[in-house]
């Protein structure tokens, strides 16, 4: 009963079969990647986790228009929470994800109460500061977190008691993909809802939103909590799959990369986050193996090109090209 109504909600929210195309493409890509790169499953899984993380940031930056540089705060806390939970409470993966989600939500809520009052530069600085404080706590609380050595000794029981984590990483791959898939469906429903429309309104004009009676601050806090929940899940996934959490989970570079990946792919359209992550991580993977010191040039150049020529991100490229071909005729 509940299942049927859930399917109903999802179906009406996705709006017809035409919009199922990206979902189908996603599944096909996953299978293709799985068969084509059997020796890179570890890397592909990292990519899937990062996609969960970047798509969570899309809700905040792409939809609500809130630019922060501290999204790693929720990721890191989710990772530590899931790691500690696995070691001390239960090695069940799904319970661990839930714990990561709750902690991500709590961190986002309490930091969001402060952050969502700030704007522009002060918001960027505050979000960086909060993440740094959390990182400092994680590295000082050595007894709990393992400090700079990281939290190790995480081992998981089979997912749903059936799918055991294997050495090659097949289970991890499909586990991460399933989580990404479910989160994408949830976010698709969310952005098509009245709440999603209100977020886009806030991005466009907070002052007009207030003038139509929206408590803008609380809507932003809500979006931040939802984004933080998903970031916490991404962190938890990472902890469970790599069996390790390090203080680097709070790195500034991670928050910055997430923003770059999102802008690269195209903010405010969910799938842009996936494409940006795919391109960014592939370039880093390939270019870094060719030239470990200068691969950032490639990313920097691509980012420049996107900002100047494709402000809506790589995801808008097909339509742009089609438009140009159409115009030439």
């Amino acid at each position: 009963m509940i299942l049927i109504s859930t399917i109903d909600i999802v179906r009406t929210s996705l709006g017809g079969t035409g919009k199922l195309l990206p979902v189908a493409i996603l599944i096909i890509c996953a299978f293709a990647a799985f068969w084509l790169f059997p020796y890179d499953l570890g890397f592909l899984t990292q990519m899937l986790i990062m996609m969960v993380f970047v798509v969570s940031f899309d809700l905040i930056l792409g939809y609500a228009g809130v630019a922060t540089l501290g999204h790693a705060a929720m990721y890191g806390c989710g990772a530590y929470a899931a790691g500690l939970f696995a070691i001390h409470a239960s090695p069940d993966p799904l319970l661990g994800l839930a714990v990561g989600a709750v902690i991500g939500a709590l961190i986002a809520f309490f930091s969001g109460l402060l952050l969502m009052r700030a704007h522009g530069l002060s918001l960027l600085m505050l979000s960086i500061a909060i993440t740094m404080v959390l990182q400092e706590i994680a590295s000082k609380a050595r007894d709990v977190t393992g400090g700079a050595d990281g939290l190790s000794g995480i081992s998981m029981t089979p997912i749903l008691g059936v799918f055991e984590f294997d050495f090659i990483g097949k289970t991890a791959f499909w586990y991460a993909f399933s989580v990404l898939f479910i989160i994408l469906v949830v976010l698709r429903v969310l952005v098509a809802s009245p709440f999603g429309l209100a977020l886009r309104g806030i991005k466009d004009s907070p002052s007009r939103m207030r003038a139509i009676g929206t408590p803008v601050y609380w809507r932003k806090v809500t979006a931040y909590v939802i984004g933080g929940t998903i970031a916490g899940i991404a962190g938890a996934l990472s902890a469970q799959i790599t069996s390790l959490v390090s203080v680097e989970a709070f790195n500034f570079a991670l928050s910055a990369d997430v923003m770059v990946m999102l802008i690269l792919g195209g903010a405010g359209r969910l799938y842009g986050a996936l494409i940006g992550t795919l391109v960014f991580m592939t370039v880093r993977h390939v270019a870094a193996s060719i030239d470990p010191f200068n691969w950032l040039f490639v990313i920097g150049f691509m980012l420049l090109a996107v900002v100047f020529f494709l402000p809506d991100g790589l995801i808008s490229l097909p339509r742009r090209v089609a438009g140009m071909i159409g115009a030439r005729k």
Binding site: I9, T12, S13, G15, V189, L190, A192, S193, P194, F195, G196, L197, A198, T214, R219, T222
Partner: peptide, 11 residues
């Protein structure tokens, strides 16, 4: 209605 998450905005 803008605190509703599960229905479509044009529904």
């Amino acid at each position: 209605r803008t605190f509703r998450f599960l229905e479509r905005h044009d529904g």
